[in-house]
């Protein structure tokens, strides 16, 4: 079995880990404040919205790159 992740897969999973850490580790308490309000929204909300957008975009990238695997995406077919 291969022991290391391919670089593309490593980048995808590393990015996901970063996103989840920013949203769910105790670091969230640093963002737990109202000011500065950004576009009328409290900072905590903007922080969450930003990292949610980052992770959602990364999931799209993961899909487009077959989650970093070397196999080529296959067309839908009945198996």
């Amino acid at each position: 079995m291969r022991k290391t992740l391919p670089p593309r897969k490593l980048a995808i999973y590393g990015g996901m880990l970063l996103g989840f850490v920013m949203l769910e580790s105790p670091m969230i308490m640093i963002a737990n404040k109202i000011d500065p309000m950004i576009m009328g929204a409290p900072f905590l909300f903007v922080w969450n919205l930003g990292w949610w957008a980052f992770l959602t975009g990364l999931f799209l990238l993961a899909y487009l790159t077959n989650w970093g695997s070397s196999s080529v995406p296959a067309p839908q077919r009945n198996r």
Binding site: P6, S69, S70, S71, V72, A74, R79
Partner: peptide, 20 residues
Amino acid sequence: EYHPERLEGASQPVGEAATA
């Protein structure tokens, strides 16, 4: 079938991945 890079020496994916 889905992560052939995990298998040492497995150069040919099978099934869905291979069909592409």
